[in-house]
């Protein structure tokens, strides 16, 4: 464990609390892509299967349980409790275009041809692109509530912080995970446009609005 990873994970935790706060305080999931949230739940469930047969640490165990539980809870909130506030007509990204290629990539790139390792690879690739339905929705509506942009910023910061973590681990532990690093770089790159608007507008106190 190093500080980059710790702060990355904390940022990830923060993003989930911000999202829950947004849903509870506005009593609405307007502006949140159900598809992205469903993809994240899929990512956590397929990646953290090792909960059942591998012990890493109490930290690791607790975080994994939290991510699975919170992502399922968010799906419940969106699907049942605040269902009327979710508008599927603007959440139109075709997730099969993401799932298909991720299955193929996992079959091509993995560390071991076993069910858990294939699912692990799949989850890594899927996480890299899971934010796309959300960003697509943002692009379509052209604006976002400030609290939603804080959620996205915290999520993006989590991924960005994993990059110095890998550099640090390369030098201190001689450890490289090419699949996670490649997917992580792609994932972080997807946030660049968003970060630009977030830093130049939201953090200057303006509303998140994309130029027409």
């Amino acid at each position: 464990m190093n500080l980059f990873r710790l702060f990355g994970d904390l940022s990830h935790l923060a993003s989930i609390f911000i999202l829950l706060q947004k849903i509870q305080s506005t009593r609405s999931c307007r502006g949140i892509s159900f598809k992205t949230q469903a993809l994240y739940a899929t990512v956590f469930i397929t990646r953290y299967l090792d909960l059942f047969y591998e012990w890493v640490s109490l930290y690791n165990f607790t975080m994994k349980v939290f991510f699975i539980a919170s992502s399922c809870y968010i799906l419940y909130l969106m699907k049942y409790k605040y269902r009327p506030t979710h508008d599927p007509s603007i959440d139109t990204f075709r997730v099969e275009y993401l799932l298909g290629p991720c299955v193929v990539l996992a079959l091509l790139f993995h560390y071991k041809f076993s069910i858990p390792e294939l699912l692990w690879s799949f989850s890594i690739f899927l996480e890299a692109v899971a934010i796309l339905p959300q960003l697509f929705m943002l692009q379509r509506t052209g604006e976002a509530e400030t609290i939603t942009t804080h959620y996205l910023a915290a999520l993006g910061a989590y991924r960005a912080l994993y990059i110095p973590n890998w550099i640090y681990r390369y030098f201190t532990e001689d450890m490289v995970d090419p699949i996670a690093v490649t997917a992580g770089l792609v994932q972080t790159a997807l946030y660049l446009d968003f970060f630009y608007v977030y830093f130049t507008k939201v953090l200057q106190g303006q509303k998140f609005e994309l130029p027409a």
């Binding site: 890493v56 560390y111 390792e117 994993y162 450890m175 995970d177 699949i179």
Partner: peptide, 10 residues
């Protein structure tokens, strides 16, 4: 030793 991904990461 098996080569596997960074399973200690989240």
């Amino acid at each position: 030793e098996e080569t596997t991904g960074a399973h200690d990461e989240l």
